[in-house]
């Protein structure tokens, strides 16, 4: 599904350039459910941005379904992101002045499909997250759990092959967290590749693979790595 080789990323800071990812190698197969863990400031979000093609690495190779992402033009990357990748963010990232229906419709607006087909997809996505009756409401009228469900509906409305979730349960209570994780389980069963970034081990345990990000490198979960965290 995706292969990352020798990925490096650094940012400018007051003290000079600060390396976040240093020679990261990583491979995920299609349909896998992977959790990436790490302490704050270790570059989890940077990694997610690179995986989601929102940022380019300074150097290294990134292959996504055989395509060389690091050599793609911005226009092609945008198109690929729209078709292949769904995003779920910790703080939902819904547009407040659009209705739930319009928020979920958003990825389809940039996708050339007939109106009826688009409407059906939005209806199905909202049905899957159990919010079909809330389509006319605005995000601020919903609870945190409902907002995250809307974000998941928006992420899956384009039927992407990869779902990237950055701390999707970070601001939710236990019960709501469970319902969101069940949704991820359901999507995984349907063959969607899921990469979940979290600092919560209970959440990470739902994944097939757990990886740790430390010192700019990713390591598979073992007894030793879990002890060192």
């Amino acid at each position: 599904m995706m292969t990352l080789s020798n990925i490096n990323k650094s940012y400018k800071s007051a003290a000079g350039r600060e390396s976040v990812l240093g020679g990261l190698d990583f491979q995920i197969d299609a349909g896998e459910y992977v959790a990436i863990m790490g302490s704050s400031g270790t570059g989890k979000s940077t990694l997610m941005n690179i995986l989601g093609t929102l940022e380019r690495p300074d150097c290294g190779e990134y292959l996504f379904r055989g395509k060389k992402i690091h050599r793609m033009s911005n226009r092609k990357l945008t198109l690929m992101r729209n078709k292949e990748i769904g995003f779920v963010f910790q703080n939902y990232q819904l547009i407040p002045n659009l209705s739930i229906y319009q928020n979920v419709m958003l990825p389809l607006e940039y996708h050339r499909k007939g109106f009826m087909k688009k409407r059906d997809r939005v209806r199905k996505a909202l049905m899957m997250v159990g919010l079909e009756g809330k389509s006319r409401q605005k995000p601020q009228q919903l609870s945190g759990g409902q907002k995250q469900r809307v974000a998941i509906a928006r992420a899956i409305v384009n039927e992407p092959s990869l779902l990237l979730a950055d701390e999707p349960t970070g601001s939710l209570d236990e019960k709501t967290t469970e319902s969101i994780l069940k949704l991820f389980d359901h999507l995984h069963q349907r063959g969607v590749t899921i990469i979940l970034i979290t600092h919560d081990m209970e959440v990470a345990k739902r994944a097939e693979r757990i990886m740790y990000l430390k010192g700019g490198l990713l390591k598979e979960h073992t007894y030793e790595t879990s002890q060192s965290l």
Binding site: R75, L79, Q93, I95, L106, P107
Partner: peptide, 16 residues
Amino acid sequence: TREIGIRKALGASTLE
């Protein structure tokens, strides 16, 4: 700004 970020993340091109 955030809205623009969301739109770009979801597939809006620079031209759009």
